[in-house]
Amino acid sequence: MSFITARHIGKTFNGKNNSDPTVAIGDLTLDIEEKEFIAIIGPSGCGKSTFLLMVAGLESATSGELAIEGKPVTGPDHQRAIVFQEFLLFPWKTVKGNIEFGPRINRVDKGICQTLSRDLIRLVGLEGFEECFPHELSGGMKQRVAIARALANKPKVLLMDEPFGALDALTRETMQLELQKIWQKAQCTVLFVTHSITEAIFLADRVVVMGSRPGFVKKILTIDLERPRSRKIHTSHTFRRYEQILKESIWEEEEDGSWERVPALEKRSA
């Protein structure tokens, strides 16, 4: 049995003020192996963020079964950490305080917390910024803190909802390289939602293309590129071939018109 199993997942949001209910996800079936890096791409409103929240236990499915290691997901768990696009650090806590938040509330010994945060700060390259507050950091650094904070609970699953979407192109590329390094050290399963095809190929073992209205798994592409991957890989023939395949898969969707029409539901899932 796979590490994460999603069977015929459906999600319907009840319309507000008696408006028609919106079907966000129609029928989603997906198997994810342990320590796999999965990227999910798809048009706005395909329910990819909603699916991520379901795995996090922050949103429930209206139908189907979602299980991790055979156990159904019933609510949030510190084994499943989430990183959002908006960083969402605790502004009243220092870098160190933010990273130690998870272990501290889970009653991990103070000394262990400190070793843990020291190691994570080194891992994400924030040495010297331990005592800084979030407002003193740049966007890329904030997201490094958010990743370290998520990893502090030693999660089995790391969920990332467009984590680099708010960063400039150069920082974004650096962060992709960093994330690859972090993931190889942290040894966890990653679900990575993105709008960028190249980001998905660069990072993932498998790219899941979702279709919309309502959301479903349209295509799964295995990325067979050696790791660690460097920036140069972008220009390789295989990389371009993957890019082509994914673009075509998404263009089909575009011709259906659903890429352009953004249903109201994205707001909820966002």
Binding site: L53, A56, G57, L58, P76, D77, H78, R80, A81, I82, F84, E86, L88, F90, F101, G102, I105, N106, R149, A150, N153, L159
Partner: peptide
């Protein structure tokens, strides 16, 4: 922020 609450919940 609702998402800050989500982040805290997911941290346990």
């Amino acid at each position: 922020d609702k998402k800050l609450i989500m982040a805290a919940k997911s941290l346990g």
